[in-house]
Write a protein that binds this DNA or RNA. Structure first.
Lengths: 189, 189
DNA sequence: GTCGTGCGCCTAGAGATATTAGGCAATTAT
DNA sequence: ATAATTGCCTAATATCTCTAGGCGCACGAC
């Protein structure tokens, strides 16, 4: 009965890696157990159930994404910061598609509050420091930015931009230009 | 052995309704069979497998959404058209959450081509007629608009805007104002 | 060092879902 | 009316989730 050194953390990371390989929907207790060479039942000492496992992957991914974005954002301001944030966000989604998909899991309010979701909002607000926006315009702008980032990445991943000549990279760059324009010319209420 | 009058179409609609009730992930062959009071196996004369069933729901939803948007768009132009499109899009997602979730299913390129996805792009382009945009700016703008619509709706649905005072409706309205501004001031390449 | 004790992984098993193969009866075509 | 077809059935297998309970290895207590 060789011990495999299972841990909630190690199981979560393995599940996240698996998600990146085969898609977040493929993250199954059986599949992760297979990775470790143990029986399905053995994982239930470390995770509560599949939902718990997937939630843990989501929380992990949110934290990692926040780290990546924070690193890219360091020392930048204005449009520079906007582009750095956006590119880091999109790059993470590209490099870790399964983890990124996990970040879109609907979390319990308590779990969400304890997660890195707040860091995302804070960093988005930090970008806006380079633009002159008061509340509630700032909140509206945060939501717009997040919508564009997530929406673009999500549509790009689900193949929404494939049937045309225009490269997805080029449109992304122009979308950021457009956001910069609108943040500088935010319409009055 | 009473016949239930199963049809691919009726099965698909039942699956879509079920999706709206319990979520798109809950759309299962067994669950739909239960709705009709037949055995699971009986559905396989009408659908190929679960994936096929879900794809059919997605295609149905794309067509319905296109219908709703087209109706809202009729006779409008400029910002009026932009707001009508966006509101119809968001309203559909709110009223038919399961169907809307289905529209984000990754479709095979052939299926996607045969679906109403093209109508969506065409209608988005129609909006842009009210703004002076040439290619490739037009394609970039289409992608930006779609990203905002989908991104906002998706984040709203997954609870992203819950922890603040600002109403989701208000931010949505301002996001559309912002899009109008940027379409009128599209940055030069 | 050895002796527990507990933790880590196991076996066993039940319930759901997906899917295939093949059958009989109800409907439709002739 | 009879033949052909179609619609739903039973049966069976595989995969996945999850619970209950067991056994031994590794650690701390002494």
């Amino acid at each position: 009965m060789a011990r495999r050194g299972l841990t909630t953390q190690r199981v979560t990371v393995a599940a996240a890696d698996l998600a990146d390989e085969i898609g977040f929907e493929g993250v199954t207790v059986s599949a992760v157990a297979r990775l470790f060479g143990v029986r399905d039942a053995s994982l239930y000492s470390h995770i509560k159930n599949v939902q718990d496992l997937r939630t843990r992957v989501a929380v992990l991914a949110l934290a990692e994404l926040a780290d990546h974005v924070a690193a890219a954002l360091a020392g930048r301001a204005g449009k520079d910061a906007l582009v750095a944030f956006a590119d880091a966000y999109r790059a993470y989604a590209k490099e870790y598609p399964g983890r990124y998909a996990a970040t879109r899991l609907e979390l319990d309010p308590e779990v969400a509050a304890a997660s890195a979701a707040g860091r995302h909002a804070a960093m988005t607000r930090a970008i806006l420091r380079g633009y002159a926006l008061e509340e509630p315009d700032q909140t509206d702008a945060v939501r717009l930015l997040h919508s564009v980032f997530h929406g673009y990445v999500s549509l790009e991943r689900s193949g929404g931009f494939q049937n045309t000549q225009r490269a997805a990279d080029a449109s992304w760059s122009r979308a950021l230009d457009a956001l910069d324009v609108v943040l500088n010319n935010w319409p009055p209420a």
